[in-house]
Structures are given as C-alpha cells and as structure tokens.
C-alpha cells in the first residue's frame, strides 16, 4: 500500500516559511511496525483527501515516553517528554492528532505540567468530526455495508480518557451490522499490551489476555473487529492467530475502515 502523494514534514514546511495547521504524531508503532504503518498511511490519505494542512515530525519525532512511565522509569519518561516538548514548541505546534491512544494520553494529560500544552485529539475523534462536517462520506455500497462489525475499546482511549462515542459514530455511518462486545466501553477488557506489557512476556498464568479478548470477539459473531490502537491491533491479531480463525475474523483500524469505505 504505497502512498502516491508526498507526506510533508514540519521541517520542510518551516523551510518554506509555512506552518502546519495540524501535526500528525505518528508514534513508534505507526512508524516502525509494518502492520501499524498501514494505519498511518490510511490516516495520511484521509488528511490528504480532506485537504488539511498537516505535517509529521519525521525523524525529529521521539517516543513520548509512555512505556517508560508505565514501567516506573519516571526519569526516562520526563527526558523524552522534555525533548519532545522542546521540538514541538520550537515549531510552534498548537494542534496534534495521533493514531496511538498511549501517545494521545501522554501528550494530552502528562505533557502540560512539563511545559507542553497542545490541543491533542485521537484520529477517531478527527475522523468523527470530518464525517460530521460532511467532508468524509462512505461510498454507496461500501465494502462494509451489512458486515457484522464490533469495536474494541483501547484502555487509554476509553477508560483513561472517556472517548467512547467518537469511534462508534465513525462506524455507524457504514451501514454495517454493528454489535458490541460483552465487555465494552467503561467495562471493556484490555488487549493485554498496556503498562509496557507490549515489551515483555506475560507473567505465568492460565491464558493470555489477548486470547481472552478474542474469545469475546468470537462470541459477538462479528467478522471484523475494529481497533483504534496499534498495540491493540498487534494483540488482537496475535489472538486471532492463536485461535486459528484468521479466515473468519479480520482486525482493522477505524482509520483503515474509513479510508476503504471512502475509496481512498
């Protein structure tokens, strides 16, 4: 999935004497993880399509420090945060969109007190507002029409920041057969990756958390599970693989679904 358009960096824009209206914070997963890169590109396509003047930081972006903070390394977190804040302030960034709920939470909640106050939104919120403004509209007879779709709440978007409705509203316009998981919204079950679990093996137990979660998906009889977090994406896909149901259940990000439904 190659993008046919150029993705601008803030440095480039600055060199031309311009400033982006919106910074797209890609995040480490979105930059390096092959599967998450597809989510990143879908978001770029959407931004390009609606004509928002956006840019990425490119090689000037650094991890927000979220995994360090959740793992108890406050020093490393604050080092990362202060370096990022310096870059963001240097470019006079005011508004940020990100595809990762962990970046979203950290940028939005934990940076202000360290000197970095920005308007931070998650990509599901951006897409939802673009739909509300009429700038995005699924094509008639889009690929998801009538499909049974469920949504998995990422902890750092849902419980952590109470963003429950925006991603759901994005899915509602698809004319699909939407179904909730038995544990959803504030009662949603974690995919198992939060709190730096993404970077370690789980403690001994009788089951992996992502398998437990995929069992909820199976129970919902959905054929597509929509995710809104690159870590959830990895965990759900691994769970689906562990259950050997890759043929039956697809894991797609809300941004990918939107891009496809709009024929982008």
């Amino acid at each position: 999935m190659e993008t046919t358009f150029h993705i601008p960096t803030v440095a480039e824009m600055t060199a031309k004497g311009e400033r982006p209206d919106l910074l797209f914070w890609v995040g480490c997963a979105g930059s390096f993880d092959e599967r998450a890169q597809r989510i990143t590109k879908s978001i770029c396509k959407i931004l390009q399509h609606v004509g928002i003047k956006y840019a990425i930081l490119g090689t000037e972006e650094n991890c927000t420090g979220d995994p360090a903070k959740r793992a108890g390394n406050e020093f490393l977190f604050q080092m990362q945060a202060m370096m990022n804040i310096e870059v963001l302030r240097g470019y006079e960034i005011t508004k940020i969109v990100t595809a990762c709920p962990h970046c979203f939470n950290t940028l939005k909640n934990e940076y202000p007190n360290l000197g970095g106050s920005f308007e931070v939104i998650h990509h599901t919120q951006l897409i939802q507002s673009l739909i509300a403004e009429g700038k995005l509209k699924p094509a008639d007879g889009n690929a998801f029409k009538g499909k049974r779709i469920t949504y998995h709440d990422p902890c750092y978007l849902g419980r952590a920041n109470e963003v429950y409705e925006a991603p759901r509203q994005v899915l509602e316009v698809l004319d699909a057969d939407l179904v909730e998981l038995k544990r959803c919204k504030s009662n949603g079950l974690c995919c198992g990756a939060g709190g730096a679990q993404m970077f370690k093996e789980p403690e001994p137990g009788k089951k992996d958390v992502n398998v437990e979660r995929v069992e909820d998906v199976i129970e919902s009889k959905a054929t597509i599970v929509a995710a809104a977090c690159p870590f959830c994406m990895t965990m759900l896909r691994d769970g689906v693989k562990a259950k050997e149901i890759e043929q039956e259940i697809q894991v797609l990000d809300v941004a990918e679904i939107t891009a496809k439904a709009n024929n982008l």
Binding site: E61, C63, P67
Partner: peptide, 18 residues
C-alpha cells in the same frame, strides 16, 4: 528508548522510512 528514541531497536534515522 534512551538510544533510539523508540521502544524497539530501530534507528532514529529510519523513523520516516515508511
């Protein structure tokens, strides 16, 4: 994180390769 600015072992310079 300290060395590459990412939790995985990827070079900072490759961040925008995608």
């Amino acid at each position: 994180l300290e060395n590459n600015g990412a939790p995985w072992k990827y070079a900072q310079a490759d961040r925008a390769n995608w």
